[in-house]
Every structure is written in structure tokens, then in C-alpha cells.
Design a protein around this nucleic acid. Sequence first.
DNA 1: GTATTGACGTAATAATATTACGTCGTAAGC
DNA 2: GCTTACGACGTAATATTATTACGTCAATAC
Lengths: 135, 135
Amino acid sequence: MTAHSHPQLTKNQSMVFGSLSEAGGPLTAYAILDELRDDGFRAPLQVYRALDKLVEYGMVHRLESLNAFVACSHKGCSGHGTAAFAICDKCGDVREFMPDEVVQSLKAWTESNGFALSRTTIELRGICKNCRKVA
Amino acid sequence: MTAHSHPQLTKNQSMVFGSLSEAGGPLTAYAILDELRDDGFRAPLQVYRALDKLVEYGMVHRLESLNAFVACSHKGCSGHGTAAFAICDKCGDVREFMPDEVVQSLKAWTESNGFALSRTTIELRGICKNCRKVA
DNA sequence: GTATTGACGTAATAATATTACGTCGTAAGC
DNA sequence: GCTTACGACGTAATATTATTACGTCAATAC
Ligand SMILES: [Zn+2]
Ligand SMILES: [Zn+2]
Ligand SMILES: [Zn+2]
Ligand SMILES: [Zn+2]
């Protein structure tokens, strides 16, 4: 499997990914479980196992500050560099973006400090443009 | 209270802050609770309430990717700009730094996207310099 | 003095995540 | 063919993290 092909998903992985894609926003593991109960899901572990793989494949991102998961906004994506997330505390909207400069700058820090980087979390909390207008 | 003075801490807040300072690294809320049982702490809420205030005062930071808390490494600090954290997955060491360029760059993004930023999480996971030497 | 406020104590519960153990199907290895 | 190894799965139990609810108390504001 190359960096730009989808791995073959199992049934459970497909269903979890489908659930997240349809949602169009972040869901917690237990919210996904509830969505999929009618499809035969019975236990959290079924969800967590699928999520582990989907995150590994780069198709789903974990939002640490929400304890939630979101489908990658890059459609058909099977992995890309570090992403950042702007999370609206009012409407829950999540906007994924690729902050290249930021990543470069952090990389420079890790290199000059001998830190072997494996994973980066960048999450911005605040109020999105839309919600500010409504205010 | 100014941006650079310590607020007067309550007894519980002092104890929680003391516990975190002594630890010299991240602790979960329940680890703090265990530390403080001999001092009369009985329930999680006592810890969470103190942590809420300490985080508000900028004396303690929450590490989202660990669900843990760490005393600000800037001694006597009562609040500063956005910090970043390099977390070693081997030894658990946490290094706090101020990535000014990164913060500037993220700020630029928020401004050009109409996002009203309130809080920023930047956490790097990997292996620290020391642990790489030992390997 | 009374009302408001903020910190506190305690119990109960909710929400998130993992460990443990057994099953099944498939693909190698021989 | 037989066996072994592996990965995904099902289920139950449990661990870990966080919040809600409700009452007390002391300090301050009016
Ligand atoms: Zn993505
Ligand atoms: Zn919004
Ligand atoms: Zn700090
Ligand atoms: Zn280390």
C-alpha cells in the first residue's frame, strides 16, 4: 500500500469511517457506538479498534482537546503531514488546515533540541467566523 | 491582580500546586488526589476545582494528549502566552517552550480566517534527546 | 442584617478507554 | 494436506477521567 492509496477496510472500519464521514464533524467513540448499534455494534472496543486503524491510516484524526474523532477533510485522503484544527466552541465546527510554516518551525525546534518527533497535536479553540457574525 | 502577580491561593489550590511542583512533571488529577489523601483530600472534585483555578491563573498547564497537568516551568509564573510542550514517550519528561514564530503564524491564520482564538494546544510527542542516547 | 458570592465537602454518576480472554478465517510454511 | 501464525472480531469486565447535584460555610456588599 502506497502513501496515496486507501487500504482495504474491514467491515467495522468501513462502518466507523462511514459514520464519521456522514457526521461531517467530530464524534466521540461512544457517539459512534450509538450510531452503529443498529448495525450490530455492541461494545466500545469495536469502535476503538476501528478508530485505531483509521487513525493509523491517516483517514481519521483524533482531537485531543475534545476526546473525539473526525474524518480527514481531505477527501479520499490516506495520510498527509501534520494538520492543525480550529474548533469552534459555539457551533462545534472543526476546520482542518495544513500550517506548513508552523510545522517547519516546530521541526526546527525538535531538530535543534534532539527530539525525535513522532506525532504533533495543534488545536485552536475559539469562535468561528460564522458564529461571530450571529453573536 | 496584575498579569504578573500571583493570586492568593486557597489551601487546596496551594496543595495541588505544591504536589505538581514537587513532581517536576505531569500528573493526572487522580494521581494528585492520591498524593494528597494524607492531607485530607477525599474526592476528585477537590482536585479538579483547584486545577481549574490554577490553569486559569496560568500557573498550571493541561496536557490534552495525556489528560494530565503540569506546573508551569517558568518559576513564579502567573501567566504567559501560548506554550508548546515536547513530551517524551519513553521517560515521560515534558519540556515547555515558547514557540513565538509558531504562535505568530497561527495567529495570522486565525486573523485571515475570522476565527476568534481563545486557547491554543501545541503538543509534540516523541523521544527526547536523553532517551535517544540510551536507546 | 440580609443577600450574594466563592470556596469547600461529599456522594453519586457520567463519559472515556483499556485489559483479558476466547473465537474465527485466512495465508504461509512445511 | 496439516499446522502455525496472524489479524480481526465478540464479549465481559474493569480502569480511568470528569462532571452533576446538593448542601455548608465564611467573607463581602448593600
Ligand atoms: Zn487530514
Ligand atoms: Zn461556530
Ligand atoms: Zn508556562
Ligand atoms: Zn525521554
